[in-house]
Write a protein that binds this DNA or RNA. Structure first.
Length: 913
RNA sequence: GGGCGCGUAGCUCAGUGGUAGAGCACUACGUUGACAUCGUAGGGGUCACUGGUUCGAACCCAGUCGCGCCCA
């Protein structure tokens, strides 16, 4: 059955995907040749709640290109797929669903029942992205799909926790952490986003105790010396967060701030609760900012926590976990205070309501000194989007500073390479300043921390309750209710998916893995932690190369976001244009280190490319070109066929070089240019003439070559456009599917050595010149005309006569005649080694031809001037490499010849006019 | 404030010292049974600016302007 005129991606993709699946084409080790090495990529596991977005499409296209090529090269390939349990995100989705359906809430259900609901949800809806990745053509070994809460993976996570705990690298401590009041859990530094916000800076007056006063400067002379003072019995503190004032345990001034020097060591009385708090000297107070004195709330501010430690100020927590004020029954707060009734009414108020009320009280009670507009950054939870609260709680931490060393050294010493290299700086700057990593989360969905407590509060860290119980001598135990940060488990993705700690064959064969392909936004979250954890646990780098790709933006350069409504759904694009077009678009734009702007136009263009390949295959089929299993590209006889064989070899070499250096865009452009520009535009047109030649040997060879070239195109394109290539490959009976066929290994030097490259290049330029003149002289497209040869070097005479029919066909020439001189009314064509002309009596437009000649001549003369001056420059002659010198000389003489021809032609026209 | 990056054709972008490129868009013309999702030809650029290094700079260096991202 003949091929349709256009390629129907939709039906083909489904059929091909099913065929790959049926044959287990992507299984680990499929197509591996004995004696070759392994090649392993770990997919960055998408969230189980996730749907495929352009970032995933890009990320996985790149991985698939690497994986498919190496599978074709016969390596033992594993592309390990899986999904992340995504603690907060998943818990949020299920809680929302419960609320929407009017079902009992998480807390009403209780932990066990709620977790069962999450698992149910995962079974029902958690596989969506896998199906979407299959639509994209991702050739993961789906039979090995892993989930970060699978039994085996869970065991690995607990084992690592226990191991690090025993080594003292994980500890529990009461620390100030970033608290998300919406989800009511601690989050890590990385999950905090700084959001610039227009706010206020309030100045509050805290009265000095014991009748103290001081003189505050209010006027200065030209040299900035104070000349006028105000006697004050209060101290003005500036704050952006008045709602935390009830937790103040001190006021700090800069030790060298003259204004306040006399006050250091004295006390102020905190309004509303009448707590007596000291004035301390600390560098944290900035004399330039606000009033120069700053209230210290160690339990609700990271800087203040540090000041508290330095100056011995105790932290007082005045908030509930939802960031409402906690005053009543808060012994810590009440100790040493005489709390006013107004203050006690603040109990239970949300932090922002409390802020308003406190400012109002300050105003009415006369201790509001003033208020200024102030733009500052406010930390927000990256999931909840609410302001996070520094909050004092007991949490588990990884002592990251103790395990970071090897992760830094690996990259510094090149055992793991980050591409593009500028991201190494990002990596280093974070790791070199690493803080303890808060890994406990007050959630239910996740790996529950493997620590049990007895009634006295002693800790027993063990991989199972039974083990903990033994350690505790059978005392009744309760388990720590918290779960681990999701990134703690994804940090173990490389070893965890391969069956560690069991010595599985997969672990032995594929670890360390090869390349990690990921977005720059998770270098800290994931890449750095995988490095640290794998090195800490098994002592090896998890991969030798990290390819960091950029962000996919919309065509105007904006980040795709739901709120902007500019999100392009890759599945919609695939439906419309086919997965191959989407993949090729992404690959062709994958320049290292630069964001890519995706426009639908571009995808459409590559859809057309798929159609182009399809039609080239149609041509091949209609002309009965069948692949010859014994075909030897080095034995080809005819010039045109030698030429295309050489081009194929060059293309394969360039594609290999580009892919070896992760230049996916170069590889894609090379292929596009060859397939469309070389094979379709020129070779297919030449082949039509060869088929017509009537020489059975030439026809036979051309058929074999044409089929071979198409096959090479399919092979080389397959990693980029797997579906259309596989479909076309399957048109012929073959031993293997394309996905398992051998990647081209051509010796370019042997195949491009002949003179055919030069000969056909010359023929192509001649055809282009003739076409250009015809078009500009407005010769009707269908009209065949005579080509006159006036001068031509012997070598080119032979080239022309051997390929005359090609020129006749492609330039619409009826005959070739020799002539001694250029006739009048002829357009002149100067080519390397000779001069041709086209007699165009009655057709030629003298003005147009004059203009054409002048334009060419101008350009050439400009170049000649530049070349002459360069060759007249002693500096150039003395310093330029001989190669450049020689080329420049050659170029000048050939331009001189051309200029002479064109000038002569122009003179004739002008003499005539 | 610190760091990283970007500024090349109308648009989106390649281009690591030796003749400024591609795709799209635009204009004109449609011939040859693979393809109109096509073909042929054409127009279009002070490579942000200033200075330096060099025989030679889009490319290297310094500064300026504009834009983006990350960290504090």
């Amino acid at each position: 059955m003949a091929l349709e005129k256009t390629y129907d991606a939709g039906s083909v993709e489904r059929r091909i995907a099913a065929e790959w699946e049926k044959r287990g084409a992507f299984a680990a080790g499929a197509n591996a040749k004995s004696g070759t090495g392994s090649y392993c990529i770990m997919i960055p596991p998408p969230n189980v709640t996730g749907l495929l977005h352009m970032g995933h499409a890009f990320n996985n296209t790149i991985q698939d290109i690497l994986v498919r090529r190496n599978r074709m090269r016969g390596l033992d390939v594993l592309w390990q797929p899986g999904q992340d349990h995504a603690g907060i995100a998943t818990q949020m989705v299920v809680e929302r669903e419960l609320a929407e359906k009017g079902q009992p809430s998480r807390t009403e259900l209780g932990r066990e029942k709620f977790l069962q609901r999450v698992w149910d949800w995962k079974e029902e809806s958690g596989g969506a992205i896998i199906q979407q990745l299959k639509r994209l053509g991702a050739s993961c070994d789906w039979s090995r799909n892993r989930f970060t809460m699978d039994k085996g993976f869970h065991d690995a996570v607990l084992r690592v926790f226990v191991d690090l705990h025993r080594k003292g690298l994980i500890y529990r401590g009461k620390r100030l952490v970033n608290w998300d009041p919406h989800f009511e859990t601690a989050i890590s530094d990385l999950e905090v986003e700084q959001v610039e916000t227009d706010g206020k800076l309030w100045r509050l007056r805290y009265p000095l105790e014991n009748g103290e006063f001081y003189n505050h400067p209010v006027a200065w002379d030209d040299d900035g010396k104070p000349i006028e003072w105000q006697r004050r019995d209060y101290l003005v503190v500036a704050t952006t967060r008045p709602e935390t004032m009830l937790g103040d345990t001190g006021v700090a001034v800069h030790p060298e701030d003259e204004r306040y020097r006399s006050l250091i060591g004295k006390t102020v009385r905190l309004p509303l609760c009448n707590r007596s708090i000291p004035i301390v000297a600390d560098h944290h107070a900035d004399p330039e900012k606000g009033a120069g004195a700053v209230k210290i709330t160690p339990a609700h501010d990271f800087n203040d926590w540090e000041v508290g430690l330095r100056c011995g100020l105790k932290p007082i927590n005045i908030m509930h976990t939802d960031a409402s004020l906690k005053l009543t029954g808060n012994d810590e707060f009440l100790a040493g205070c005489e709390v006013s009734d107004e203050a006690l009414e603040l109990h239970g108020l949300d932090r922002y309501a409390a802020r308003d009320r406190i400012v109002q009280l300050a105003e009415t009670q006369g201790w509001l000194d003033g208020v200024d507009d102030d733009r500052h950054t406010v930390p927000h939870g990256d999931r909840s989007k609410v302001a996070v609260e520094p909050f004092l709680t007991d949490q588990w931490f990884v002592d990251a500073g103790k395990i970071v060393g090897p992760a830094i050294e690996s990259v510094r010493e090149g055992r793991t390479r980050i591409l593009p290299a500028q991201f190494e700086k990002t990596y280093f700057s974070w790791l070199e300043n690493i803080e303890p990593w808060c890994i406990s989360r007050q959630l239910w969905w996740g790996h529950q921390i493997p620590v049990w407590y007895d009634e006295e509060g002693n800790q027993y860290c063990a991989a199972s309750e039974a083990e903990a119980s033994t350690m505790a001598g059978g005392k009744p135990l309760t388990r720590d209710p918290d779960v681990l940060d999701t990134w703690f488990s994804s940090g173990l993705w490389p070893i965890g998916t391969l069956g560690w700690p069991q010595p599985t064959p997969e672990y032995n064969r594929y670890f360390p893995t090869d390349v990690l392909v990921t977005g720059f936004d998770i270098i800290f979250f994931w890449v750095a932690r995988m490095m640290m954890m794998q090195l800490a646990v098994v002592g090896k780098e998890p991969f030798h190369t990290v390819y960091v790709h950029a962000l996919v933006r919309d065509e105007f350069g904006r980040k795709m976001s739901k709120s902007l409504g500019n999100v392009i759904d890759p599945i919609e694009l695939i439906d419309k244009y086919g997965a191959d077009a989407v993949r090729f678009t992404l690959a062709s734009m994958a320049v290292m280190g630069r964001d890519l702007r995706l426009s639908e136009q571009r995808v459409k263009g590559y859809r057309n490319f798929a159609t182009k390949i399809w039609n080239a295959a149609r041509f091949v089929e209609l002309n009965e070109c069948r692949p010859d299993p014994d075909f030897d590209p080095s034995g080809v006889q005819s010039t045109v066929n030698q030429w295309i064989v050489g081009k194929v070899a060059d293309t394969a070499t360039s594609v290999d070089a580009a892919l070896a250096s992760y230049r996916f865009n170069d590889a894609a452009h090379t292929l596009y240019d060859f397939v469309w520009g070389g094979f379709c535009d020129w070779y297919v047109e030449f082949a039509k003439e060869l088929f017509r030649s009537g020489d059975p040997a030439v026809v036979e060879e051309t058929r074999s070559v044409t089929a071979w070239v198409l096959d090479q195109c399919l092979l080389l394109l397959h990693p980029f456009m797997p579906f259309v290539t596989e479909e076309l490959w399957g048109r012929e009976p073959r031993g293997k599917m394309l996905v398992h066929s051998d990647w081209p290994d051509l010796n370019a030097n042997a195949l491009t050595g002949s003179s055919s490259v030069k000969d056909i290049g010359w023929i192509i330029r001649l055809i282009e010149e003739i076409r250009s003149v015809r078009s500009q002289m407005r010769v009707p497209a269908g009209q065949r005309i005579t080509l006159l040869q006036t001068e031509l070097e012997d070598g080119f005479v032979r080239t022309l006569s051997a390929n005359k029919e090609l020129v006749f066909r492609l330039a619409r020439i009826s005959e070739l005649r020799m002539t001694a001189s250029v006739p009048t009314d002829a357009a002149v064509i100067a080519v390397e080694g000779g001069v041709f002309c086209l007699p165009l009596r009655g057709v030629i437009d003298v003005a147009a031809e004059t203009a054409r000649l002048e334009k060419s001549l101008n350009a050439i003369n400009g170049e000649i001037r530049a070349l002459r001056s360069r060759l007249a420059n002693p500096g150039f002659l003395n310093n330029a490499p001989s190669e450049v010198l020689r080329e420049t000389g050659l170029r000048l003489s050939s331009r001189d010849e051309e200029a002479a021809v064109l000038q002569a032609a122009l003179n004739r026209f002008q003499a005539k006019g």
